[in-house]
């Protein structure tokens, strides 16, 4: 799996295209501290006022802050709005 990811990573680097354009890639756009657009979101893992956890590629993205909402879903992208304090990338842990 790691080999495949590395292969896709190298391919993206070699072709000079964004990694998120290839399978398993994801991208983030943060506008100020209030709007975060996550492209390549596979799943919402947890949803709270102060913490939203999203599955992106083979990793998890934890958005911490306050008054957080997932306000828009379209074509694999999720827009998180609210007062964003921190973004954490982590490994998927099977519960």
């Amino acid at each position: 799996m790691r080999k495949k990811r590395d292969l896709l990573g190298r391919l993206a680097a070699g072709l000079d295209i964004p990694r998120e354009a290839l399978p398993g890639g994801f991208g983030l756009s943060l506008a100020g501290d209030s709007t975060l657009t996550v492209r390549g979101c596979k799943r919402i893992l947890d949803y709270h006022d102060d913490c939203i956890v999203l599955a992106v590629g083979s990793r998890t993205l934890t958005v911490q802050g306050s008054a957080l909402f997932c306000s828009a879903f379209a074509a694999g992208s999720v827009t998180v709005t609210g007062q964003i304090a921190a973004l954490l990338l982590g490994e998927v842990t099977d519960a």
């Binding site: 919402i44 947890d46 949803y47 709270h48 909402f69 306000s71 879903f73 379209a74 074509a75 999720v78």
Partner: peptide, 20 residues
Amino acid sequence: ATVLLEACRTLGVSPRRQRR
């Protein structure tokens, strides 16, 4: 709420408004 939001995401349905 996570389940409902995940269903929305799966279906590509964006909530018009949210509040707690």
